[in-house]
Design a protein around this nucleic acid. Structure first.
Lengths: 348, 348
DNA sequence: TATTGACGCGGGAACGTTCCCGCACAAGCA
DNA sequence: TGCTTGTGCGGGAACGTTCCCGCGTCAATA
């Protein structure tokens, strides 16, 4: 027994891992040869290659990932943080948009050979500084987000699902807000709507801001009187209250465009509690990526923000920039998807 | 200019990172001293420490995470995979239980100084073999899950949200299925239910199996005739169909216990489509961690599987095992939580 | 003045892997 | 036989960091 002197410290003796040299010594070869044998590289005779592999298998050898990374110079690890709702660090998973964005990002990263590391919403520097991140995804960044700036300062390229202008190493994907909102409004009008109510939110988010502007511009063109109910923030609770408020008005709308990402079945229930039939009395379109929208009766028309597309395009841009080493910012607009279902057409 | 010969390859010249030695050379110190200065260790004069820090700051030095990991011997990285629904790798994020389990696990890991790496459902060995994982969480593992076995073979301790028996290095957290089901049935009975219908699923999952057994045992004790509708798998679509089927029966139940993790508002809508009033005509309890359950009118009574608790206890067990180096399997049962709301009491 | 100890800093090994290169040997050819 | 070419394998540096230890200096004490 040639037990190495390592691990001669505490009592439990935590079973020293078998290293490449251990395999080499056991096989009577050099570590170079064993490494080549296991990686399928180098010029080796079949006999030696097989012998090395067999020995490694027998000893239960597993290469040390960290050591490989150090040699390779990259970890193929992408950090991922969602910046909305900083006060409740992980609640974004409850939003179907972010849930899908998260899983689609993980998926896209993986098909490129990268893995995703989940970072908390607030994500202080020392929470990722020790991680060998090659790149980062920052979803819904704040204005002049310090997290983005920290990543860039650390030479870690970043991609975001919001337009990010002119920062070296910062890439972005975004949706065409104007086209999306106009598409919905036109669709509702074509379905017979004369008074379209909008439920939006006060938010730092560019989305609500641009959507509101577009709505007003559209109303002006059509000489419609804008009918807006603004909540303090997105979510089911506030959205229900806003809808209640809007439907209680004397100038009740005949169509509803709900931007605030609430649960579609919940929106339907809220409307029905006012004694309204859908779609006869009220047409509904809501911004949502919640699959339950297809399950109600009638199924609910949704404007999908296309998180899957955003994720895959984002990862693509990010990795292209990373692997080319070119920090010139790139960006792309992806289309939204209006899935027309029962709540916005009366022909059903 | 003493430019090092590194990076003398391709054209873009990818801006060589500044290393510890670069800072040391610039500051006229040794790398040992600079390292100690930046880490706040060693015996150094204030002047030297400040000088080293200032120089590092000026050069924009960022320590190489991988090299630190190699020295440290661990990466503080935990792999995370959900094994249900292997055919649609990432769909688990749509389930509130898994969404919460995921975020709570990330949260718990982070408070212990670990980060979570998202792995796909199928997760072949070579997808994580290159990652410096210290431990792994496998949610809803299959029976004799090969992924779990691979992790254990690689000496990576595993924790699961399902009982895992007698495998060295495999730890688990689980809920008390029997107590949970009996609790719900007793609660419904106390609320006046005489015929409790159960919507369950055929699944490899221990949960449905034990729940069904418990239900039958409970019915036998009370001399109730069991009233079960079994779906092929959990989810909204199948659950709606199962409920429709059950409510169309001549021996229609006066209470419903839905195990299949469907959207609570959707369940309510399905029931109402049969012309039933809730809770007057039908009491409802459903297994769900969906926050929309609180938003309906009446709000829906849910049995929470306590993903947050499972996650935090799981991570705790996992890290205790990891850091003690003791591979003896540990396990713990955590309670479920019956949140009684409007759909299961008539006193409202 | 010699001895001790604390203080301030640096040399160099170690973490475990990959890869460049060089060496020994065999085979081919003149 | 002497030279070249190719094959099979190993030595050792490198990746960038941390940490053990040792060395020189200086003040305090005998």
């Amino acid at each position: 027994m040639t037990t190495s002197p390592r691990g001669g410290g505490q009592r439990p003796a935590p079973v020293p891992r078998v290293r490449l040299v251990d395999v080499a010594r056991e096989a009577g070869l050099s570590k170079t040869t064993v490494s080549a044998a296991l990686n399928g590289t180098g010029r080796l005779s079949d006999a030696v290659r097989l012998h090395a592999q067999e020995t490694a298998r027998r000893l239960g050898y597993r290469p040390n990932a960290t050591a490989r990374l150090l040699r390779a110079g990259h970890a193929r690890l992408i950090g991922y943080a969602v910046r909305e709702y900083v006060e409740t660090p992980w609640s974004y998973m409850e939003s179907p948009y972010f849930a899908q964005l998260t899983s689609a990002t993980a998926q896209a990263a993986l098909t490129h050979g990268y893995a995703l590391v989940l970072l908390p919403t607030h994500s202080a520097r020392d929470e990722w500084a020790d991680l060998p991140l090659d790149a980062a995804v920052v979803a819904d960044p704040l204005a002049d987000d310090p997290l983005v700036e920290d990543f860039l300062a650390a030479r870690i390229p970043v991609v975001s699902d919001r337009r990010l202008e002119g920062m070296t190493g910062a890439h972005w994907v975004d949706i065409d807000h104007v086209a999306a909102v106009r598409g919905v409004l036109d669709h509702l009008t074509a379905g017979g709507a004369r008074r379209i109510g909008l439920v939006a939110a006060h938010s730092s988010s560019l989305f609500y801001e641009e959507a509101l502007t577009t709505y007003h511009a559209w109303c002006l063109e059509r000489e419609f009187a804008p009918l807006v109910e603004a909540t303090t923030r997105p979510g089911n609770q506030t959205t229900r209250a806003a809808i209640d408020h809007m439907l209680a008005r004397p100038d009740r709308p005949d169509a509803l465009f709900v931007l605030t990402e609430a649960s579609p079945p919940l929106i339907l229930e809220t409307v029905r509690a006012h004694g309204l039939n859908v779609p006869e009395d009220l047409l509904i379109v809501c911004v949502s990526d919640d699959p339950t929208a297809t399950q109600t009766d009638p199924p609910i028309t949704t404007l999908s923000l296309n998180p899957a597309e955003i994720a895959s395009v984002g990862v693509e841009l990010l990795l292209k920039a990373l692997e080319s080493g070119d920090p010139t910012p790139t960006g792309r607009i992806v289309p939204t998807h209006l899935e027309i279902r029962g709540t916005s057409r009366r022909d059903g």
